[in-house]
Design a protein around this nucleic acid. Structure first.
Lengths: 156, 156
DNA sequence: CCAATTTGGTTTCAAAATGAAACCACCCGG
DNA sequence: CCGGGTGGTTTCATTTTGAAACCAAATTGG
């Protein structure tokens, strides 16, 4: 799981994210956590993943502060895995994957689950990337600016 | 690469997306394609990936309509790999990964690349999930609604 | 036009990751 | 205090990965 160059930390934020959560099981575990699954057995049953793999991935996500282990909500001596604030901040990533899948991975009339606003029960809007001034942007309107060093000290 | 249950197509759009692009190399290849890399050798040099793995992943992305093979832009007999419209629609996913990485995978003063609006040169806004009515939503404001079948026919 | 080099792969093989199954300790309910 | 459920770990066969060698077609230098 993400063993590439542990020495040279890349300056690309996409790559740092992908190194942590860029694998199938981690992403599906995070999806399930957003869906409210908490227990080892729930994840295992829902994903059909081998228990050793599941244990490895849960440890990985806990180690990276995406999930945390808390006392079970049912009062038993077991424990739950729940999203931390850092984990919940992956919401946009999961919504992005969902909306792309909705748009590109289904036949027009094929059944699919849909993310709705709890309050209104209506599907959420398509996410947009916007400039600082609020203008919607496509990928061709943007560019990655490399920052070699933090500004040593401002001259003024 | 995504060999899980090829028979039962899940109704979860997140899972369908993850089955296609939920691996480290695919996501990094897509990032590089957004950055304008086109040639086999460019990807290979930039990622440091083994050539057999790169060939497999490029074939996979082409097979799924995310990249396409086009005549080389330099007029040579080689060819380029470029994002299709379907591939460009992954922009929000990549921006989501980038913004999460920026926020959670760097020390405050650590050097990082940044995505800017080409026109203004200013960093893009944080992406937001919004309700149909425009209200910003967090994960706790939303729920996944399972849709078992397409509406057979409207009664009215 | 020919030789050398570059490009874009494929093949081969060892090492690593995955996954199924067996095993096991602890908790819980009766 | 017994039987089953929960949450793992261990073992081992299979699959995937990756490094390196190899190779054909295209390009470049002379």
């Amino acid at each position: 799981m993400a063993k590439r160059k542990p020495q040279s930390r890349t300056e690309c934020p996409v790559e740092r994210s992908v190194d942590i959560i860029g694998d199938e099981w981690s992403l599906l575990l995070i999806r399930d956590a957003f869906d409210g699954l908490r227990r080892f057995g729930e994840f295992q049953k829902n994903l059909g993943v081998a228990k050793n793999i599941l244990a490895t991935r849960l440890r990985h996500l806990v180690a990276h502060g995406i999930l945390e282990v808390v006392p079970a909500s049912d009062g038993s001596a077991f424990h739950d895995y729940v999203l931390t604030p850092k984990g919940r901040d992956l919401f946009q990533v999961l919504v992005g994957l969902r909306q792309w899948g909705e748009h590109h991975c289904f036949q027009p009339n094929e059944a699919r689950s849909v993310l709705v606003d709890t309050e209104q029960g209506r599907p959420v809007r398509a996410m947009e990337v916007r400039s600082e001034s609020g203008r919607p942007l496509t990928s061709t309107d943007t560019v990655v600016k490399k920052v070699s060093e933090k500004k040593p000290r401002s001259k003024r």
